[in-house]
Amino acid sequence: MQTITVEPLAQEHIQILRLTSTPHLSGGLDTIAPYSVWITYRLNTGANQHTWTAAVSGYRVLRNGVTDMDAASIVLTNLADQDTTPDWLTDLIAKYTPSW
């Protein structure tokens, strides 16, 4: 039997949440009425802080404010979008952060 040497590089934890009564979210050219979010937390080996990515899915909101049935998503990360992440999403990210 061959011995394989491995080195852990990172840990990831994913939370998938259904959203209700969530305010519209805008990112780039899209505005969506969110219905779910996938939050991926990542802790690289040797790091003392994790990173997160939130992929928010929802129905596209047209310019006239009407919610369309076309699905769209907006992806936010703590590395690029920390200052523009809405409070409701920041609260969810903090609430579901793993203890590692």
Rank of each mutant, 00 (worst) to 15 (best):
Tyr59Gly: 01
Ser57Glu: 14
Gly27Met: 12
Val56Gly: 03
Leu17Asn: 06
Gly58Glu: 14
Pro23Gly: 06
Tyr41Phe: 14
Ser57Ile: 02
Thr51Trp: 01
Thr31Ser: 09
Pro23Asn: 06
Val56Asp: 04
Asn44Gly: 11
Ala33Pro: 00
Thr45Glu: 15
Ile16Cys: 09
Val61Leu: 03
Leu25Asn: 11
Pro23Leu: 08
Leu62Ile: 01
Tyr41Trp: 08
Thr45Asn: 12
Pro23Trp: 07
Leu17Cys: 03
Gly58Val: 12
Tyr59Ile: 00
Tyr59Asn: 12
Ser57Tyr: 15
Gln49His: 03
Asn48Arg: 12
Ser26Arg: 08
Pro23Ile: 07
Ile16Glu: 15
Leu62Trp: 01
Asn44Ser: 13
Ser21Gln: 15
Asp30Ser: 04
Thr53Gln: 15
Val61Tyr: 02
Val37Gly: 01
His24Asn: 15
Ser21Asp: 15
Trp52Thr: 02
Gly27Arg: 12
Thr22Tyr: 04
His50Ile: 00
Pro34Trp: 13
Ile39Gln: 11
Ile39Ser: 10
Ala54Ile: 04
Thr20Gly: 05
His50Ser: 15
Tyr41Pro: 04
Thr45Asp: 12
Ile32Gly: 05
Leu62Cys: 02
Asn48Phe: 11
Thr45Lys: 11
Ser26Ala: 13
Ala55Asn: 10
Ala33Cys: 08
Ala33Gly: 01
Arg42Glu: 12
Pro34Thr: 08
Val37Asn: 01
Pro23Cys: 08
Thr22Arg: 02
Gly28Trp: 14
Asp30Ala: 04
Ile39Arg: 07
Asn48Tyr: 09
Ala47His: 10
Leu43Lys: 09
Leu43Asp: 02
Pro23Ala: 06
Leu43His: 01
Tyr59Asp: 06
Ser36Lys: 07
Leu25Phe: 15
Pro34Val: 09
Thr20His: 09
Val56Gln: 04
Tyr41His: 09
Leu17Gln: 06
Ala55Gly: 02
Ile16Lys: 15
Tyr35His: 15
Thr51Tyr: 05
Leu29Glu: 02
Ser57Trp: 09
Ile39Asn: 08
Val56Glu: 04
Tyr35Leu: 10
Ser26His: 06
Val61Ser: 02
Thr31Asn: 05
Asp30Tyr: 02
Asp30Val: 00
Val61Arg: 01
Thr45Tyr: 11
Asn44Val: 11
Tyr35Ala: 04
Thr22His: 02
